[in-house]
């Protein structure tokens, strides 16, 4: 196609089959989960088939984007498009977490105090509101996670990883590939260590009785930290992908938005963690 060349200062891709493969994947994935959650025997299989197709699609689509980028098809203006789109994507993620933080604040400021109020005394005479709580219905007791143990270490790990990825970025800007690869690798290791600490913390929490089903405290604790952990996992995978690209010699000092986009994302999960540390673990 005549528009496949960057003659008009903006690269317009040819027709592509990746999106519809992704749609089929998501239909399998979501349909499979709906089956799984309702105890249909085929549920897990359909779900994993969906995941497999989705991973395959992302491999193809991102592979294509990488080859286009390395092929010099992306002009400055395309680069600006990527910057805008990544910024708005991160904004949408911020709003997703805002919803869950909103649930936490609402529970702590309104729902739990009201359940202990005079209106509810007939229904729940023995409930004394406070935080943490598993609500007025009797639940197994649980221990909360001490903020100044593993969570504090995790804070240190993520903040450090924010520094190491910046050092890696400076390496890229100076075209010092060794600095780039080593410090990016360090960032990946810090991310993985963080995830390992989270796994240890979760197993401790469960052994101390704190579960997803432990009323509103367990709900907000695991959903917020769980979604954050998922985002760190995705961020770590993104870091690993660009690490391999760096090793293969991709990116130049003035054309490396994939690196910057991942770095922005990494800083975003870092900032979310700081909010988690303060409002979920500490206060």
């Amino acid at each position: 196609m005549s528009n496949a060349t960057p003659t008009h200062n903006y690269y317009l891709p040819e027709p592509a089959g990746y999106p519809v493969i992704g749609s089929v994947a998501l239909l399998l994935f979501t349909g499979g989960m709906a089956m799984w959650f309702n105890s249909h025997a085929l549920g897990p299989w359909v779900t994993f088939a969906g995941v497999a197709v989705l991973v395959y699609m992302m491999y193809l689509w991102f592979g294509k984007v990488i080859s286009e980028s390395e092929g010099g098809l992306y002009t400055k203006r395309v680069d600006v498009s990527y910057r805008w789109s990544m910024s708005w994507f991160i904004f949408s993620e911020v709003m997703f977490f805002a919803g869950f933080f909103g649930a936490l604040f609402y529970a702590r400021l309104y729902a739990v105090p009201e359940l202990g109020g005079l209106d509810q005394k007939l229904l729940w005479p023995d409930f004394s509101p406070g935080w943490p709580t598993s609500g007025p219905m009797p639940h197994d007791p649980f221990e909360t996670v001490n903020a100044w143990g593993l969570p504090a270490l995790n804070t240190l790990l993520l903040l450090t990883s924010g520094v190491t990825i910046t050092i890696a970025h400076f390496g890229l800007l100076k075209n010092n590939r060794k600095q780039l690869i080593i410090w990016l690798g360090a960032t990946i290791l810090l991310g993985m260590t963080f995830l390992a600490c989270q796994a240890i913390e979760y197993s401790h929490a469960y052994s101390e009785g704190l579960k997803l089903t432990s009323g509103i405290y367990g709900t907000t604790f695991f959903m917020l930290t769980g979604f954050h952990g998922f985002h760190v996992t995705v961020g770590t995978i993104m870091l690993i992908v660009i690490w391999f690209r760096c090793v293969k010699g991709h990116f130049t000092p003035d054309h490396h938005f994939a690196f910057e986009g991942v770095a922005w994302y990494w800083h975003f999960v870092d900032v979310v963690w700081l909010f988690l540390f303060v409002f979920v673990y500490w206060l």
Partner: peptide
């Protein structure tokens, strides 16, 4: 989870 379940402290 108990987001919307008053018995668990939600609303």
């Amino acid at each position: 989870t108990s987001f919307f379940n008053a018995a668990g402290g939600g609303d």
